[in-house]
Design a protein around this nucleic acid. Sequence first.
DNA 1: CATTCGAATTGTAGCGCTACAATCGCCCAG
DNA 2: CTGGGCGATTGTAGCGCTACAATTCGAATG
Lengths: 325, 325
Amino acid sequence: MSDVAREAGVSPMSVSNAFKRPDIVLPATRERILAVARRLGYVPNRIAGTLASGRSHVVAAIVPSIRNSSFARTIQGLGDYLTEHGYELLLAVADTPERERRAIEAVLGRRPEGIVLTGNEHPPETLALLAGVETPVVETWILGDPIIDMAVGFSLADAGYAIGTFLTGRGYRHIGFAGYAPASQRRFLERQGGFQSALREAGLRDDLLFYAEEAAGFAGGRAAVTELLQREPRLDALFCVTDIFAAGALFECQRRGLSVPGQLAIAGFGDFEIAAEIVPALTTVRTRGYEIGQAAGRLLLDRAAGGPPGGRVNVGFELVSREST
Amino acid sequence: MSDVAREAGVSPMSVSNAFKRPDIVLPATRERILAVARRLGYVPNRIAGTLASGRSHVVAAIVPSIRNSSFARTIQGLGDYLTEHGYELLLAVADTPERERRAIEAVLGRRPEGIVLTGNEHPPETLALLAGVETPVVETWILGDPIIDMAVGFSLADAGYAIGTFLTGRGYRHIGFAGYAPASQRRFLERQGGFQSALREAGLRDDLLFYAEEAAGFAGGRAAVTELLQREPRLDALFCVTDIFAAGALFECQRRGLSVPGQLAIAGFGDFEIAAEIVPALTTVRTRGYEIGQAAGRLLLDRAAGGPPGGRVNVGFELVSREST
DNA sequence: CATTCGAATTGTAGCGCTACAATCGCCCAG
DNA sequence: CTGGGCGATTGTAGCGCTACAATTCGAATG
């Protein structure tokens, strides 16, 4: 910086201002400084800047996966919002609670001005770690308690219930569920619970449940069809916890020569691109992953600007009825 | 840090050492320091550490998209490698050359010890920016010149040629290509060029080309089938630039009642999970995205440790023949 | 022409840590 | 009993920048 200052014939402080507060430096001076900087290949050291100002202009996000398009959309929404407001995104992928804790620790060392988490299932040490710092936290894809501070999401229980009543309303009588073991994450339990309530209210059995290994994709749907049909040959509808699962189930039906929805109706979750394109097109729940990311960014930046803690944003969801049911 | 030092009855320097050089501090002292740190909720400030030591222990990656599973795998591979070696990944998503330049600029301010880029198509200002700093750069998913410094990938031309000869060898005579406009990125051109060579060598026409909008997913495949069949009703095979394109093309065939591969053979690229699951399963090219990420990390860390510049790693590819051809 | 005012510019004093050299204290050989 | 050697610990200086207060200077005012 001082090299640039010397070459441009100004003080280092003016170089700093030329980059950070363009409005308070004379346009001519500013141009001269920037020209010298370009010539010398000078890129301001934000590390030093952060240390001096105490503001990192970084928000960190910790997601369990980037393969899942829901989270990919959330990251995109968050990233767009942050970039637009002069912030940067520090992304960490952590697929187990232990890795999440380590990622949070690593990330805290870089003094982000906010942290975006996925879900609200965190081990006690993680909560203690977060309680010990004053960094604002937003939990996403969940709205129910316990929330550490702020949250953005929608009611997974309502969404599960909506799909359940939709299927019972269509007259299906032996309805299965394909998902992940609810013990692992509360957000799985919520969705499943809402769905089961709907079945019980219609006087139907709610025990045709199949749990795949976590991170199972298309293969999970395939396994669900295989196992549930064996347990209940009269199975006439299946709700899958993601559209990828649902597509896997649909492929398995094609392999077995089962017509969809004639012999088995299939509903998914997420409204991923494949849902509208696959044949037959999938009935699903449209979630607003991009908006979740944007809202998370907004909560955090408002907070950094002195806003109140404890914000909650419900982005809602939407049932999309297509050919598969 | 000085609070922790006071409470633990040691000098700040010992607190620093307890975290950064565990081996040179007495285990008992170290334990005492860490206990105090935990009680006080102290997390070392890596910003200050980076400024003082001149080592950020950060590698930055700039990718055009995280929705594409090839890049997602590369990120995963890079992230795993870095985490294993005590480094962190700073990820930026930039889908245009202009945004890439801005992302690189932003990222350089954080003084990463290496930068991972996708492709080798960068505007002159970007190259100038990179030339002005001494940060090592790895370009991925490409091997051909011009390479800024180091590269990891495989020959896209060979891969395109392999698919081409495979299809001609199977006896197909009117073979189409669905991809992105080669003007936008050289890596698209390479793949297409290799493919076309194979067709010409077999004495076949190589002008059944369809270009989708960039970032088109399943819809791109759908449009390709529609347009190419109109231009050439005898079309009997189609090579798609990604498996997602191929799946979209396959769905369109299902809608039209065209049998695959009976009336139209379809080949994809990438060996995404869907390729093996869809019915009929897709012939495709298996790429090694995860290995690309790992190798990129290795090149960079070796370089940071004093290794030589200019490294190239060819991770190869593999043709996977399935039911769709 | 002296005075005031505000915009533009500039010093100063750290931000929290680590490299490196200096120091301390203990054990053991002579 | 003493000096040397070695591992553990500790001061010092500074990384590159920004907040903030101080200063400069030209234009406007009476």
